[in-house]
Amino acid sequence: MNPVVTSDPELARALLNGEAGAFDAFVSAYRGKLFNYTFLMCGQREDAEEVAQETLLKVFESFDQLREPDRLKSWVFRIAKNFCLMKRRKSVFAPEVELSLDELKPARADGDAIAIDIADWSALPEHAAANAELREVLAAAVRDLPEMYRSVFLLRDVEELSTEETAQILDVSLDVIKTRLHRARLALRQKLDQHLRTSKGVYAG
């Protein structure tokens, strides 16, 4: 009797029609995802759980206002982003810092006009996120990203939303999303590069 829900548009339709199981399916599909996003945006577990609950509540209250079932995910994340912003106003946040490309580009190796100064990336295991020490490095790098870059990185690379969907969620242009994503990735790459220099060879083999 539970609907076999395989996609977001189906899930959206099942919810709107009040089908049995749709409520639980939605909560289990989205609560973890939302917490992941809100935790990395708010930084505090308590805030993140509160924002995730506020988001789910708003989603259920106003589900009949979702115009396009295909856009379920970006609609939900837009609500989450707005609650994150409200939460932010209540606390003290660091001012937004722009990441400059000049600080993210590779440095030239000493005394060399061509070669760049770069870590040995072959030392990075294929499934880096499965390694406990590396996971900590990745987490710290994500936390250190200025918020406007962190948000774009989480929506584009972690949640795999499109540039268009991310632009809708964050109310900025496609070009801004592309610029921020590139800088976010470069900043994360730089952190990982620094780590690989200090832990040379630890993960090899």
Partner: peptide, 22 residues
């Protein structure tokens, strides 16, 4: 070299999820 490092980095961070669950 740089493109390879960026590819590897993007793929490592894509797989990343925080340890914490709600």
């Amino acid at each position: 070299q740089f493109v390879e490092s960026l590819r590897k980095s993007v793929s490592a961070f894509r797989d990343f999820r925080p340890q914490e669950n709600p």
